[in-house]
Design a protein around this nucleic acid. Structure first.
Lengths: 315, 315
DNA sequence: ACATCGCGGTCTTCAGAGTAA
DNA sequence: ATTACTCTGAAGACCGCGATG
């Protein structure tokens, strides 16, 4: 049997009230009793039952994280960083990866509510927006509009689109393909595309939009393109492999940009130019925004846009 | 205020007992009451408080996952798969990434206990073994010895070492470097090394062991080596980049093997030969082992070793 | 249908003992 | 002896639900 408050009290030879006072640090207490209690706690290896505590309406110190998956290294690193930063603030994380399945995501949202999380950070990309209206816990969204009262923290994708385009133009490519995801109409991906469009417009250039969902990479590439703006790093590297098999060398015979900028990909594929979304800063802002939401639930908190930067392979 | 059981009962005009019966589906109930209750639940957007339920001694339906990090794509994919499979079994996951920090790991272990998880899957690589003796919840370990009564599920690293070596020998390399991690003396990594040693011995070949922690990759490679056994895929690709800068081509001028075999790396770097630890199967075994531990906590459950296979780049 | 208890804590109330001014 | 203050304790309500009678 796990030790309970009562057991600690009995071992220390004092009342449960006093033990509770020691644990929660209130009221007036003598040094001696405090020490006795701590000794008893150690001896019994006592852990206050977090469930019982949370039932008093105390914060559960749980934050729910909803992300489509952990396989995308960018999400994995973001989640990892969020988890790390939250832990130092005394929060535990429940990670829900919805696997891009709205039903699962709905279940998870219910679960998070049922488990009384103190807040939710959602990086989901596929939930019906209405679901989020009913949620009472404070929410912050990563990179996507969910509802009017839910603040968004995102990387500056308009700037990202511009930087990627600028890179291609500077390397004087002739024919540009841009991978676009038409489904993501509510997400800032549109901004990215707008950044591309505007930059190209300023330089009187055109491009071919290729819909991610209706195009077979292996058949369109290399094709006529010597410039490609991919929608993420993994996709970018798939395309690189296709060019490679055709005997074409990245950064020489053709130019291509990724998007996301995970540390992992930079380590494994340092030759890939890409737009870097700053993971540490995004995490900090997401958490800071969530914390103010938790402290003052009625206030409206402004959305935050974090600048990105472009990684150019050295040499 | 969030809806409670009582609110549902009042709205439906019946007692809490009956509502509870409907929710937990026992006792005899009329169709009419059931419908009334469901209607009331929907209207109030009611979610049973999982914390309160868990307090009755009922299973919390939480499984704790302890892994060093989520950045390693192999861990990320394993966790992702575990999370997915557990969810279909009605379990939620609390992910604790210890960041290779024993203190954090200790805190997390306490936290998991305090939150009454029904079981723990630990892929940790750095905790003092004694900590795990005090844990009362059922535990299964991934790929590492923790304590006598804790079953281990692992990939066959001896076989992995052999397969990697076989690949190099078949490609007639002359001088072989093997990356070793001396710290991991308790882990099956030793088995992997043994597999390498045995295979080479049978072919009357020798190798140079290079300690991961005391060697600067950029200075020893390419050096004299045309064959390298790396200890994981990310490290392997770092080495590939070093050879690349020296103008040497993988699978032609030199041969190298990775270890882990995440789907991600195979997608982004399909040219990397590597030992594949089957993630889906490992997950299944881990969960199955944990479930029998949960059902019959007093039984000793045997450890499981899952075969690996070798991925050779096509072309 | 109702009432009541129990899970493991928190917190409040009321009271009492000891010490000091 | 009076007041005041510090430390501790006993008892009970309560959180939301499940189980019993």
């Amino acid at each position: 049997m796990v030790a309970k408050l009562k057991d600690v009290a009995e071992l220390a030879g004092i009342s449960v009230t006093t033990v509770s006072r020691v644990i929660n640090n209130y009221g007036s207490l003598s040094e001696k009793t405090i020490k006795k209690v701590h000794a008893a706690m150690r001896e019994l290896n006592y852990q206050p039952n977090a469930l019982a505590r949370a039932m008093q309406g105390k914060p559960s110190k749980f934050i729910g994280l909803i992300f489509p998956n952990l396989i995308n290294p960018f999400f994995a690193e973001l989640v990892n960083e969020l988890e790390r930063q939250l832990f130092t603030k005394g929060y535990k994380t429940i990670i829900a990866s919805s696997a891009e399945n709205p039903e699962i995501e709905h279940d998870y949202l219910s679960m998070l509510m049922a488990n009384q999380v103190d807040g939710i950070i959602s990086g989901s990309h596929n939930l019906d927006i209405k679901e989020y209206h009913q949620v009472t816990a404070p929410i912050v969204s990563f990179d996507r509009y969910l509802a009017d009262n839910i603040p968004i923290v995102s990387a500056d994708s308009y700037q990202g689109g511009q930087l990627a385009t600028q890179y291609l133009i500077e390397h004087q490519v002739r024919r540009i393909a841009v991978m676009v995801d038409e489904d993501q109409s509510v997400s800032p991906t549109v901004n990215r595309l707008q950044g591309v469009v505007d930059y190209l417009g300023q330089h009187h250039r055109s491009f071919d939009p290729l819909d991610v969902h209706h195009v077979d990479l292996a058949t369109v590439f290399p094709g006529i393109y010597d410039g490609v703006i991919a929608s993420n790093d993994v996709q970018a590297l798939r395309i690189v492999n296709i060019y490679h098999r055709a005997g074409l060398r990245l950064n020489q015979d053709y130019f291509l940009t990724g998007y996301n900028g995970s540390t992992l990909i930079r380590q494994t594929n340092p030759e890939l130019p890409t737009v870097i979304q700053p993971i540490a800063e995004l995490s900090t802002k997401l958490i800071a925004t969530l914390m103010t939401r938790i402290k003052r639930p009625q206030d409206t908190v402004p959305s935050v846009v974090v600048p990105v930067h472009f990684y150019t392979p050295q040499n």
